[in-house]
Design a protein around this nucleic acid. Sequence first.
RNA 1: GUGGGAGUAGCUCAGUUGGAUAGAGCAUCGGAUUGUGGCUCCGAAGGUCGAGGGUUCGAGUCUCUUCUCCCACCCCA
Length: 462
Amino acid sequence: MATSENQPKKKLIEPRTLKGFRDFLPEAMIPRERLIERVTKTYRNYGFCPIDTPVLEYLEILLGKGSDETDKQLYRFKDSGGREVGMRFDLTVPFARFSAQHLAEIGQPFKRYHLAKVWRGENTQAGRYREFMQCDFDTIGTTSVFSDVETAMVINDVVERVDLRTEDSFTKFKIHVNSRKILNGALEKIGLSDRSTAVLRALDKLAKIGADRVVEEMKETASATEEQARSILAVATAEGSNEAALARIEKLLEGSELGLEGVADLRQILDSTASAGIPKERFVVDVSIARGLDYYTGTIFETFLDEIPQLGSICSGGRYDNLAELYTKQKLPGIGASLGLDRLFAGLEELGMVEKTATTVDVFIPMFDASLATRYVTLAAGLRRKGIGVELYPEAKKLGQQLKYADKKGFKVALVIGLDESARDVVNLKDLRSGGQLEVSAEIESLASKIHSVLSDGLDPQ
RNA sequence: GUGGGAGUAGCUCAGUUGGAUAGAGCAUCGGAUUGUGGCUCCGAAGGUCGAGGGUUCGAGUCUCUUCUCCCACCCCA
């Protein structure tokens, strides 16, 4: 190999990232972290506990758990010890393994959340990447419908808090609810139970491609008759209010114990969430949502933003009978959901709900005069002890340049201290948003409270 | 994986029938301005024209191969 000293010109390595993989600059990462914080806080608010699992799993743990598609998308390789390994493509499969492995320690019921990156080697598209973050929460070890109710409430709470500009509730979204029991009851009644996957996959596309093409697809992929397909659609397209839709479905499913159970579950979810104060119109009974994955057996959720439904579901989940059947004989029923952070973030940006900032603190101290450096360091430390984040500029450049830097980064106030101020033991407190400034005492206690008031009320320009 | 589109400065793009040293705006850095940011003016830096081959006196431009990215399908968050 030729060394660089032997070459007339050093060949630079092109800095680049893999397709579907991204860097996050501060102005993207700061709001992203804020969103993550809010999601975490909401999950914890319900008693969900954090866990983590390895990025790599033995290949046999991951293979054949989703569809053939997920097998194809799996990042897999041999490690240096010759072991067949793969990178997790979701958080549910690792959780299933985790539950089976630690069941004795975690007990039941068990509620966990897990925010982590997952990897899928599929083709990229707008809002779809090969490395992306999922924010899962699950409750296992109980079949109680009140876990379904709680799951619905968590989804609602978490999406209500996505407006990163404010603390106010975001309301322009709908949670679509369905139950596999209703679908399976209907399939049972018309004798299509053995082809449920294909039928449901077709049904899932209803909103996208319309009734006629769904029927066509069912005939093709599930070899359903026209009559069978139409009768599934009759259940799936029950319209009107949630109550009216459920009443109609109840009629259509008469005699199907399973189907009626599904109707009862949905009624309970709607009733309980309404009593808990969640607006009724937030939920939409929608029998056409089916979810791709096969392991759902009961309630299903999908969440859409009112203004960009074409973005797809930003938070989806459902109930399953047996999470870890491939790893343990112990039956583990549960329910959970997953927030697609990157897709949601793409949506929030489109809706202008992401405030751009490149700083993590509000207060900026320019190094006005090099001889006062220690003075600045001390002042900054004092304010930080008071819980006020401060950035001190590291070089004694021209004041104008330092303020320009502060302005560009989005600091809200600057504390300007030159020889004059220092001698009189005062601080020139400048509101960078309005341009107004005020001379205040440099005493930490009063300075801190003054900063607080300027941060919340601003300072009039003079 | 299938189909379509596009690759020129960090970003958005211009570049005529093939012609000499490849340009602009924004962004970056510096100066005008050694006690005050956003506006203005001036300047600097920044390019293997995605890569490799071919045609030609001459290629950013034509041609072939290849790579990458974007869009749609499939599937999904």
